[in-house]
């Protein structure tokens, strides 16, 4: 058994030894989000190049529901606030209220998905399916992949809330929160691209 364990005790729980001053869990999340920026970047760049080359897509874009996009944006921004409050609770070692705040964030995330679902069904029934034109293919692909990241975020936050309720692994609250903020930052660019640049 090695005398030098990798572990080091900090305010919110046991984290690995850290030469860079950033706990390993948060450092890993930064690298993961760096890769995610490229995934969404590749997708959005393809879409932007398509929009700039196809003026006719602007007519297609008229049918996107800006109001619903706006409401979803507000929901996500509010959910960010609760995640930050959960992080503050975790720092005060108050696992129970951190879990409560996380569950509010999860509820808001589910609300986002439900609204998105209505929006999809409304659009599909209006004939704006994925086959209609390449713009709609991009619309469904971008919002679909963003939506799947919201689902992953919801699952992660729920798991973190379960352990946080018992007061364990509180540093996870912050790492999951960072992931959630990133997913919201993606929506900050998806919203203007799909709903405002018409």
């Amino acid at each position: 058994m090695s005398a030098l364990t990798n572990d080091m005790r900090t305010a919110t729980g046991v984290i690995t030894r850290s030469n860079t001053g950033i706990p390993s869990s948060r450092l890993a999340m930064w690298f993961l989000l760096g890769g995610e920026v490229l995934i969404f970047g590749g997708l959005l760049v393809s879409y932007m190049m398509g929009r700039l080359a196809h003026p006719e897509w602007a007519e297609e874009a008229h049918h996107t529901a800006t109001t619903i996009g706006f409401i979803n944006a507000i929901i996500l921004l509010t959910s960010d606030l609760f995640v930050v409050m959960a992080h503050a609770d975790a720092q005060r070692k108050d696992g129970a209220s951190a879990a409560k705040n996380i569950m509010i964030t999860v509820a808001l995330g589910l609300a986002f998905l439900v609204i998105k679902g209505f929006e999809y069904s409304h659009e599909i029934s209006a004939g704006l399916t994925i086959h209609k034109s390449v713009f709609w293919a991009y619309y469904y692909l971008i919002t679909g992949i963003h939506g799947s990241h919201i689902v992953v975020g919801i699952i992660a936050l729920t798991l973190v809330a379960r352990t946080a309720k018992r007061g364990e692994q509180l540093q996870r609250v912050e790492t999951a929160g960072i992931y959630w903020h990133f997913v919201d930052m993606v929506w900050l660019i998806v919203f203007p691209l799909l709903y405002i640049a018409k």
């Binding site: 930064w30 690298f31 989000l33 760096g34 890769g35 920026v37 490229l38 970047g41 590749g42 959005l44």
Partner: peptide, 9 residues
């Protein structure tokens, strides 16, 4: 890290 990833995009 973030600036370089956005720069590569």
């Amino acid at each position: 890290l973030w600036i370089s990833s956005v720069f590569f995009v």
